[in-house]
């Protein structure tokens, strides 16, 4: 479903991602963890073209994006990739000038060219799914962080993505609001969605993910099963990281 081949990303001289190769099959839930600055978010953003790759290639649901592609080909491929992927951001990025339901409807109308009434039905169902049916007509600023992030998940799901990308979805939330977002994500995982989650929630990664990618210095240092990883990480880098995380 997702395939990275020798994927690299650098800004000027600074190499953020170094020759990453991996395959993620359909329905797999992958948690990407690691210290900040390790390139986790950049890696995720390369998967849907929010960052331009500078080396290698990435293939999403058989849409192959190569660093050597001409701009026109690249934009076309990225556009196709984005039809198959949904993304959830750390800062939610809901549209503040639109109500909750309009946030979910927007891409249905603009990208999928659905009629307003069809989009409304779809959006209402999704909001119900994330437990926010009673908030349809309020503006995002009136919602808690957890509620906003659930709307953002509904907005991404509206496009019926085959892959969901989560970029630290709970990092901007008050601790007591983390659970409601993780619950929605867990349900999604149980339904068989292919998911890549950059997260600092170790317990969630352990319980919900099928696979852990531990990144450091722009590389995937460890790629293992959650149980094995959290019981005894293979590399010293990962051991140190986990020790730090569990310090208090």
């Amino acid at each position: 479903m997702i395939q990275a081949n020798d994927l690299s990303k650098s800004y000027d001289q600074h190499e953020v991602l170094k020759h990453i190769s991996l395959t993620i099959p359909a329905h797999q839930v992958v948690a990407v963890i690691g210290p900040s600055g390790s390139g986790k978010s950049t890696f995720l953003r390369c998967l849907n073209g929010l960052e331009t790759i500078t080396g290698g290639s990435v293939s999403i649901n058989n849409h192959l994006l190569k660093a050597t592609d001409k701009k026109k080909t690249r934009l076309k491929t990225i556009h196709e990739i984005r039809q198959d992927t949904g993304m959830v951001f750390q800062q939610f990025n809901l549209y503040p000038h639109k109500t909750v339901i309009e946030n979910v409807m927007e891409a249905l109308i603009i990208v999928k060219k659905q009629s307003k009434s069809t989009a409304k039905t779809v959006a209402a169902q999704l909001l119900k799914r994330v437990g926010l049916q009673e908030k349809e007509d309020v503006y995002p600023s009136k919602l808690s962080g957890g509620q906003q992030q659930r709307v953002a998940i509904a907005r991404a799901l509206a496009m019926e993505p085959k892959i969901m990308l989560f970029d630290e979805p709970t990092s901007a939330l008050d601790p007591e609001l983390v659970g409601e977002v993780l619950k929605v994500m867990k349900e999604l995982a149980d339904e068989g969605m292919t998911m890549v989650i950059v997260t600092h929630e170790m317990r969630f990664a352990e319980s919900a993910a099928d696979r852990i990618l531990f990144m450091a210095d722009g590389q995937i240092v460890e790629d293992s099963e959650p149980k094995a990883f959290f019981a005894q990480p293979a590399t010293e880098r990962a051991q140190k990281f986990l020790a730090k995380v569990n310090e208090f």
Binding site: L50, M87, F89, L94, E106, A107, I110, A158, M159
Partner: peptide
């Protein structure tokens, strides 16, 4: 208008033009 607004719109499959027209400009006008 925060860059995240454009990114969110692009991530849902909008083209850059659609993102500017539908998401960025309305916020910028205010």
């Amino acid at each position: 208008v925060p860059a995240g607004q454009t990114e969110a719109a692009l991530a849902t499959g909008m083209t850059e033009g659609q993102a500017i027209r539908r998401i960025v400009i309305p916020q910028a006008i205010r």
